Simulated scan of single mutants.
Amino acid sequence: MTNFSDSENDEPDPDALPDPIPDEWESWIKEYAWKLYAHARQFCPLQHDAEDLVQAVVAELWNSGADASTLELPFALSRIRHRAIDHLRSESSRSRRESDWHRENHHSEERGAEFPSDTEHDRQRVQAALDQLPLMFREVVSLKLWSDLTFDQIASLLEISRNTAASRYRLALEKLRPLLSPSE
């Protein structure tokens, strides 16, 4: 189970009422939530994991006292990226430890494939094609197409040169073209 929260005991107080969401945060979330989600999907193959990641980052930004009226999308996208990478690293370490333990103790575990339950055929087709690309290409395509970032913004976010960002985007589109062409 994927858990993007910082604490294992995030149980809400049942008697406490949630703080009302300020109007500027509601507007910010309404405008950018889908872009954050599209970026999160590049790291999380399952829809609910991507949703959890976005929720955790938005809550982190809100709780930090960030001002939604001045909060820029690239900063929020970088928080998604950093939190996802941290999570992937810890999952990889955990998985390696479990695998070593199973191997040492001669246990085998069968794992079934999990598939997203989303029924949007076109979105699934595009996401399936993107999933076949290495992360460095997926990330640039997602940021360019779904978040409407410039190559300068992408370069800054990913800490690469503008030319590298543009090159990765061009190469990704070349790799996607045959994957998304209509079946014959």
Rank of each mutant, 00 (worst) to 15 (best):
1 M>G: 00
3 N>W: 11
3 N>Y: 10
6 D>G: 09
7 S>W: 04
8 E>D: 12
8 E>C: 14
10 D>M: 10
12 P>E: 00
15 D>P: 01
18 P>D: 02
19 D>C: 06
25 W>Y: 01
25 W>N: 02
28 W>S: 05
29 I>V: 10
30 K>I: 11
32 Y>D: 07
41 R>G: 03
42 Q>H: 07
43 F>E: 04
48 H>D: 01
49 D>Y: 02
54 V>F: 00
56 A>S: 13
57 V>R: 00
60 E>I: 14
65 G>N: 05
66 A>L: 04
69 S>W: 07
71 L>F: 07
74 P>I: 00
77 L>C: 13
83 R>Q: 12
85 I>P: 05
86 D>S: 13
88 L>W: 01
91 E>Q: 10
91 E>G: 06
92 S>F: 09
92 S>L: 14
93 S>H: 04
93 S>Y: 05
95 S>M: 03
99 S>L: 02
100 D>E: 05
101 W>A: 03
110 E>N: 12
114 E>N: 01
120 E>S: 15
120 E>Y: 06
121 H>R: 15
123 R>E: 05
123 R>K: 07
123 R>M: 04
130 L>K: 01
131 D>N: 14
131 D>Y: 10
133 L>Q: 04
136 M>H: 15
139 E>Q: 15
141 V>Y: 09
141 V>F: 08
145 L>Q: 14
148 D>V: 13
148 D>A: 15
149 L>K: 04
152 D>M: 14
152 D>N: 10
154 I>R: 03
158 L>Q: 04
161 S>M: 06
162 R>H: 03
171 L>E: 14
172 A>Q: 02
175 K>M: 11
179 L>S: 09
182 P>S: 11
